[in-house]
């Protein structure tokens, strides 16, 4: 599979949020303002890419090498949890400005299922190293795209007159449904 097709597929055609339903918690929780949605998207993309790299190495050189595939979930979740912690400390040390923007979102990323999903999917599909990295980046870009669009719509919804029972999570889910319908239009882009 060519790199371009892989990015397009991960970011748009098979958008993580709108077709695989992963990363829904931050997608609903952190999509009230465009600024914070964008910060969240960048933080997720960053962690996703590093996760793809590290879990690929672990899977190839430890789990497969020594025949321990049943440790996949346990080792991946430990890697992600410590990675997020490490990234948080690193950013805090090197770039206080960036830390202030991303700060509160970083710990939330550990329980973002989209991160684990990237690791599971590249293992399941048997991607090579380059493919896994590209897949991680593409998935992150797709997540950012979806959450920023959502935040844009929700900023408009603030002033809309929504019936009482639909306020809050309900209307957000329905908007996400319409967004998913729109994204289905892209499915013709790739044949496979």
């Amino acid at each position: 599979m060519s790199i371009v097709v892989l990015i397009l597929s991960a970011a748009i055609v098979n958008n993580f949020v709108l077709t695989y339903f992963v990363g829904i918690c931050p997608f609903i929780g952190v999509s009230k303002k465009i600024d914070s949605a964008l910060s969240m998207g960048i933080a997720v993309t960053f962690v996703m890419t590093i996760t793809a790299i590290v879990t690929w190495i672990i899977n190839r050189f430890i789990l497969i090498q020594f025949g321990l595939p049943f440790l996949e979930y346990v080792s991946y979740i430990v890697v992600i949890a410590s990675l997020v912690q490490f990234v948080e400390m690193f950013i805090k040390k090197t770039s206080p400005a960036l830390y202030r923007t991303l700060g509160i979102f970083l710990p939330l990323i550990t329980t973002n299922c989209a991160i684990l999903f990237v690791a599971l999917l590249h293992t399941m599909r048997g991607y090579g190293f380059i493919e896994s990295v590209v897949f991680g980046i593409g998935a992150g870009v797709g997540f950012t795209l979806a959450i920023v669009i959502m935040a844009g719509i929700r900023e408009q919804l603030e002033t809309a007159d929504i019936p009482r029972p639909f306020q809050g999570a309900a209307i957000t889910l329905i908007v996400a449904g319409i967004l998913a319908l729109a994204f289905m239009g892209f499915s013709g882009l790739l044949s496979a």
Binding site: L18, I174, A176, G177, I178
Partner: peptide
Amino acid sequence: LPAGAFLTLG
């Protein structure tokens, strides 16, 4: 399809 999941749950 995915869209139906969001709409139904909403």
